[in-house]
Simulated scan of single mutants.
Amino acid sequence: MTFSIVGRSADGAAVGVAVASKFLGVGAAVPAALVNVGAVATQSYANLAYRPQALALLGTGVDAESVVKGLIAADDGPVSHRQVGVVGATGPGATFTGDDCHDWAGGVAGDGYAAQGNMLTGPGVVTSMREAWLGSAESLPYRLLAALRAGDQAGGDRRGRQSAALLVVSQGRGYGGTSDVWVDLRVDDHPDPVAELGRLLTMHSLYFESPDPDSLLALDGDVEAEVRSRLASAGFTGTALDDELASWAGVENLEMRIVPGSIDPLVLAHLRTVTQAGQ
């Protein structure tokens, strides 16, 4: 009773899953991903053992289609009610929908992706996801979200909305470069979970990603004067501007966007917002 997409970035460096459902906390059950290996979504009468099993098979070099066949062949449960999508580090994705999954149920797969869903309003949900995926050139988290949003707008789960999740892994892309988990966001119970997931992803990008080097503003002239003034109004009055800006940014959870001698326009915008009352 879920729709999802598993996908790989164009450069092969990232893999992930986006999923939504009329189900509490879908992110705790459906998605799994491992850097440089692949991603899997298990749903309908989900077999959560598919997650480690699929990743283990992908890790030995088994292609996505063979992984799906292996999962189904080894499952002694209600296979006709299962649904699963798999994508590896290379090659096309693969999807399976059991004959007894609730209508509408089905999936599509191609190079680097697989989209699937069950108990949907119709096949247009999956078709819209595929079109959005193929039409997007954004980074993998936003590309997966675009596909999920398209499926939601096409009708999504015919029972309604409740939860959504996004999981993306890429080597060293996690917080401070100390993790491979690039994005791990969950909306467990919300009237509009896909929209809320989009809001959280925007916040995640602000707080946990590094700035575009080409966008940085030099901390001199009018920019320096404004930043000093605004930091002073927030209680950061030291003479070393880089140090004071970094200290303030740490309080605001923006430390990932600090570059000595410069300021990220997004950081400046946030500084303006939080100090506006004092200006």
Rank of each mutant, 00 (worst) to 15 (best):
V168C: 10
P52Q: 01
A94G: 08
G107R: 02
G16P: 07
R230I: 02
G107T: 05
T90P: 00
V227Q: 01
A56I: 03
L58V: 10
S128R: 06
A64F: 00
V26T: 04
F236P: 09
F96Q: 02
T178S: 13
V68A: 01
P123H: 02
T237R: 13
A32C: 10
E131N: 11
T2L: 03
S21I: 09
D242R: 11
G160E: 04
A32M: 07
S210C: 00
S247Q: 15
A89E: 15
V35K: 02
E226R: 07
V181W: 00
R130C: 06
G155N: 03
L48Y: 05
L200G: 04
Y175Q: 13
V37W: 04
G77C: 09
L266A: 13
L140N: 03
A218Y: 00
F236S: 12
R257K: 04
T90H: 04
M119N: 14
V79E: 12
K22P: 00
I258L: 12
G106K: 03
P123S: 13
H270Q: 13
M203G: 11
V40S: 04
D99Y: 08
V37R: 01
A33D: 03
I263D: 04
A73Y: 00
V126L: 08
F3A: 05
V126D: 06
L185Y: 08
D157P: 11
E252H: 00
R230L: 12
P193S: 06
D212G: 06
Y113I: 06
G198C: 14
S247N: 13
A56D: 09
S205R: 15
E226W: 03
F236M: 10
A56T: 10
L219C: 09
R161S: 11
